[in-house]
Design a protein around this nucleic acid. Sequence first.
DNA 1: GAGAATTTTGGGAGGTTTGTCAATTATAGG
DNA 2: CCTATAATTGACAAACCTCCCAAAATTCTC
Lengths: 223, 223
Amino acid sequence: MTLSGPFALEASNLGKSGRTRARLMDAAVDVFAREGFQAASVNEIARLADVANGTFYVHFRDKDAIAAEVAYGITREIARQIDEAMSQIDGAAERFSFATRQFIELATTQPMWGWVLIRSAWIVPELNHRVETYLSSDLKRGVKQGIFNREIDPFIVDAISSMILSALAARLRGDAGEEAGSRVSELALCMLGFPVSEAKALAWSAITLQDFSTNVLPRAPKP
Amino acid sequence: MTLSGPFALEASNLGKSGRTRARLMDAAVDVFAREGFQAASVNEIARLADVANGTFYVHFRDKDAIAAEVAYGITREIARQIDEAMSQIDGAAERFSFATRQFIELATTQPMWGWVLIRSAWIVPELNHRVETYLSSDLKRGVKQGIFNREIDPFIVDAISSMILSALAARLRGDAGEEAGSRVSELALCMLGFPVSEAKALAWSAITLQDFSTNVLPRAPKP
DNA sequence: GAGAATTTTGGGAGGTTTGTCAATTATAGG
DNA sequence: CCTATAATTGACAAACCTCCCAAAATTCTC
């Protein structure tokens, strides 16, 4: 039996249909991560989910439909998790730095989700868009708090988010270590108008990162 | 007759084989730009180049082979052009800023090349790698000149290059105007340790951008 | 447990893709 | 003009893909 992924775990208390659907989504994550959205085939997703190819079409209209669902599920879960972990943090700069570092640690704990973000972000606009929405809200909070002295518009949000994605990619490839999150966070803070020393202090401060792998989704009840 | 692209012009004085090869490369650029590397099919490239599908395989082993050639051709020409245009500039920061701005103007004058860079950079490693090589050399020059007070390693080069690509994408989509080059250049200079005011001054200084469309490749002789 | 409703199955029609190759056409040198 | 060489062609096998649907299996309800 294939070991079930995050979506399957989450759906373990749903009806049969819901569970199959979730299995397909986990399989899709796997295929998207390995081959990217474009090269992925419905056939392979079904094969990996251990269902007949016809079953796929019972649950999703086509590849785009499952991609949208997967994008939604991934980004929602990541955002929920990060948000919860930093509910106590108020300063926008601290929040940004924490979120960035935590986000990049995704690479260690849920590499497949990371790869999907990297390999499909440019093709499934939903993905990029949602990442940028979350990012944007903390950046704007910073402007309100008078901390970032740079106007926040889609251009700069885009720039920062693609920088973060590139750091995530480096981490996934193994080209960067744990410091990746701090480094990119420092660079971004500089861009936002922070003096180098302050950016460094914030970005490299000791924090406790959540362990995605155990917390991101509710545990499945033991069988 | 299909209007010939840059590669065909460049090859107009070559033998028949060379010209066909070049036509295929221009067609490949077109298809890659529209659909991305993964979704592109050899068939469509051949169709667009107005040759039989078998002809493709005479000139290239497969899609990867032509992608590598195209990547090589595009990056070499862009680099050559930018390099020539800034041969008089010596300061690393000025060079970086000029190159960045000039590079992004590629979006206006050779949008297809721009799209290829955007849509295929993550899939054809050759592309990213070459862009980063050129970028790296000017950044390192800056360190030698004592201008950038930040260690230049692949991580930061990666970060900057993906930021530049995101600006190029915004420009191609029409979401950003002429100012895109200056904006991203300013952001990057901040990251490299420049005080905001200096970064602004450099990034927004008046410069004369080369007109890629007329200069990037030698003119074809009139028939 | 029987019958109804839900879910899954897998074969197949119709299409596209890759890569090959014998046959055809164009080009160039004598 | 004629021939040797180079270049191109297009049909084709084999693989794979999407999407459909009647039949089989499973689950639910009473």
